[in-house]
């Protein structure tokens, strides 16, 4: 009973941290566009947070560059459990067009575990919302 209440709360209130790991800004502006009046993710309780300490879901965009790697791990460790990582955009999923460049390590999953992949170049806000909602549905399934 208590656990199901907690699960319900987690599904209803995912606070996201937006973290650009070397993206071209396209996915970033689409993540931000999801907050604005046309898409308005606050309907689903999604709030953008500034610090990893307050966040539940880390929304990563872009391939991981060599310089960003250590910071990415640090941000991941700073986030309190339970935490989820969503890779937004093709680059974040696999490295995309940057795959094989000397300064790019590839997708987010090369560095930290990823829970959901949202492909697209750039991923549309609708797709981002859909991805986060599917992640939460998975969460609910895991609990039930």
């Amino acid at each position: 009973m208590f656990q199901s209440l907690v699960n319900w709360a987690r599904v209803k209130s995912p606070w996201i941290l937006h973290w650009n790991t070397g993206a071209c800004n396209a996915c970033d502006i689409e993540v931000l566009a999801a907050l604005t009046p046309r898409f308005d993710v606050e309907r689903f309780g999604i709030l953008l947070q500034g610090t990893p300490r307050h966040a539940d879901v880390i929304v990563c965009t872009g391939p991981v560059t060599r310089q960003v790697k250590d910071r990415l791990i640090r941000v991941y460790n700073q986030t309190p459990d339970p935490k989820f990582v969503v890779a937004v955009g093709t680059c974040a999923c696999s490295g995309g067009v940057f795959r094989g460049n000397y300064n790019v390590l590839g997708g987010i999953d090369q560095v930290i575990p990823v829970d959901a992949y949202i492909p697209g170049c750039a991923a549309r806000p609708d797709a981002i919302i859909d991805g986060v909602v599917k992640l939460l549905a998975k969460l609910q399934g895991k609990a039930g």
């Binding site: 907690v6 209130s13 309907r43």
Partner: peptide, 16 residues
């Protein structure tokens, strides 16, 4: 110009 959160939102945030 947005829709805004549902009524139980602060409660869900608190429990989470």
């Amino acid at each position: 110009n947005r829709v805004g959160p549902p009524w139980f939102q602060p409660f869900a945030d608190f429990i989470k």
